[in-house]
């Protein structure tokens, strides 16, 4: 019997996680978003894969429920490709958890993801991942405000200069 963390029976962890994910359907039903048991299992597997890929470990349903519930009211998703969308979000979440050096709490990170996704990215996962969250992670690593954007600042500066003229 080994106590190496990676050798813990993942089946036990996943079984528990799937049932927690399925419980979220009760709330997301109101937004016409539902996951089947198979999709829930796939989502949990994606989580396991991402955790392994990014060298992390999580207990229980973890952030999947938070991601599902936070993104339930976004105008940019529908039942069609809902599961695929969640899979990508979960992967993005763990990637940026590492990129922000664990300096940001789960709620804050998901909150920023939602804010950018619904805001400047207008539903584009690529823009969210490769532009907004990259910038945010860099800001966090440098000890700046996560929202700080030197591009906007320089634009603002230019606008002010134009106004002065």
């Amino acid at each position: 019997m080994s106590f190496d963390l990676m050798l813990f029976d993942h089946f036990l962890i996943e079984k528990q996680a799937v049932s927690e994910v399925l419980l979220c359907n009760k709330i997301t039903e109101d937004y016409a978003l539902v996951l089947s048991e198979e999709q829930a299992l796939e989502l949990v597997e994606t989580r396991s894969y991402s955790l392994k890929n990014f060298g992390r470990i999580e207990f229980g349903g973890g952030i999947i429920e938070k991601v599902i519930l936070t993104f339930a009211d976004t105008p940019y998703i529908s039942q069609y490709r809902y599961a695929e969308f969640l899979n990508e979000l979960v992967e993005i979440f763990y990637y940026f958890k590492n990129e922000t050096l664990d300096l940001m709490s789960d709620d804050d990170l998901i909150g920023y993801m939602k804010k950018y996704f619904d805001g400047v990215c207008q539903g584009s996962l690529d823009q969210l991942k490769f532009r907004e969250l990259e910038r945010m992670a860099k800001n966090v690593r440098l000890g700046l405000d996560p929202d700080y954007n030197d591009l906007y600042d320089s634009e603002k500066l230019m606008e002010e200069e134009d106004d002065d003229e």
């Binding site: 106590f3 992390r56 999580e58 229980g60 763990y94 664990d102």
Partner: peptide, 17 residues
């Protein structure tokens, strides 16, 4: 994590274990 993060890096979890 003071309840702020549900996941941690594997090295940290191994240390805690």
């Amino acid at each position: 994590t003071k309840g702020k993060s549900s996941s941690v890096r594997v090295e940290i979890a191994q240390g805690i274990m």
